[in-house]
Design a protein around this nucleic acid. Structure first.
Lengths: 199, 199
DNA sequence: CCGTCAACTTACCAACTAGTAGGTGACTTG
DNA sequence: CAAGTCACCTACTAGTTGGTAAGTTGACGG
């Protein structure tokens, strides 16, 4: 266990990967306040570093936004893959999908891309594209679950699976937004439960 | 047709009610860019007046926000009253309710309070209260329609009308948010249609 | 014709915005 | 051990933010 190439960079400065910590703080700020509701100074203060140091790792705010989506998307996609590995029925998969939203809401946060969707008009092109990609991936996964559930006769719904998937994503995002305003997670859970029960 | 008290203020300066024009511009800015996505300078530039003049009519941005909701809410409530006066069946009322959202979306805007809901954490208390009140009123109207529809057997749904109303408001708001990101009004219409068809 | 008042204006302000230039010390590598 | 590189720093910029103080203008009533 000498100098393994994979575990370098763990120097004496106890710097536990600054870029990751920056993303952690920025993510929380976007999820609670929106992309125009925080500044580099806010992040710097929390981490006890300077704004200039932030710009070293993330030259522009747009680039920070892009990286934020990138990481968030891969985490969510991983969670969806984990649901698939569990090999439960389609309805249970949808319940677990909704449970992801519940967890976020419990942490007093919104979906990162839901927030960015409402700031959409003010975002740089690469960030906009990232937001759309995130929702495309979510819908594609849902279409897979819906198709399988329909075939296995564990789900029953009218219309194209794509429209149902779009309804689900939109409804969960919207319900989340309202539930936070009321500070009421149960409100979200009731709506999510009903949406899934109707299938 | 002398000096009628009701038509005063139409002076030679052709000033067609500045506060209303300020609200018009600010409303559009909130509906497209969010509450933290515009400034007094933006409004001043469009209207060709100074920031200071804006502060004369709306001392603080929070006060502007409050007045914005106040006017928006009374307009929407008036639209709901108009739907009630038409005395069509419950399903048609819901269709007309969704049509309000479609009109807003066609104008490349979001629901004012939907936008404010996503900026919620950064808002002053009176603005927050206004947002909640708006959604409460919307849900109360929907509960009325749902109850009547269920009684008249023109609507069929499981669960409490309150939960269905919350689902509808949340789903329409969320679908709107996503449809705008994709620049696709038809996407919203398909989701709205399906939500109403399921009742 | 004088005073009042609403509706503005000019001219500020301190704080904050994203972003940059140029340096410093620690560590790595030829 | 010199050269480089990494991750940070101090110090700064130009522009923007919401907000204010102190006028100015023009209409209207007495």
């Amino acid at each position: 266990m000498g100098s393994n190439a994979a575990m370098a960079r763990t120097s004496a400065t106890a710097t536990a990967d600054t870029p990751q910590r920056v993303l952690d703080v920025a993510e929380r700020l976007v999820q609670t306040r929106g992309f125009n509701g925080f500044s580099y100074a806010d992040i710097a203060e929390v981490l006890g570093i300077t704004k200039a140091s932030l710009h070293y790792h993330f030259p522009t705010k747009a680039e920070l936004g892009r990286r934020l989506i990138e990481r968030y998307e891969s985490r969510v996609l991983e969670a969806l893959a984990a649901i698939d590995r569990a090999e439960v029925d389609a309805r249970e998969k949808l319940r677990r999908y909704a449970a992801i939203y519940v967890e976020v809401l419990r942490a007093n946060r919104m979906c990162l891309c839901g927030m960015l969707a409402s700031d959409y008009a003010t975002l740089a092109k690469p960030v906009k594209d990232g937001v759309k990609r995130f929702f495309d991936r979510n819908e594609a996964w849902l279409v897979g679950v819906l198709d399988a559930g329909r075939k296995a006769r564990t789900l029953r719904f009218s219309g194209a699976p794509a429209v149902v998937a779009q309804t689900l994503v939109g409804s969960l995002e919207g319900a989340m937004m309202l539930a936070r305003s009321y500070g009421d997670v149960a409100r979200f859970e009731a709506v999510a439960e009903r949406l899934i029960a109707e299938l």
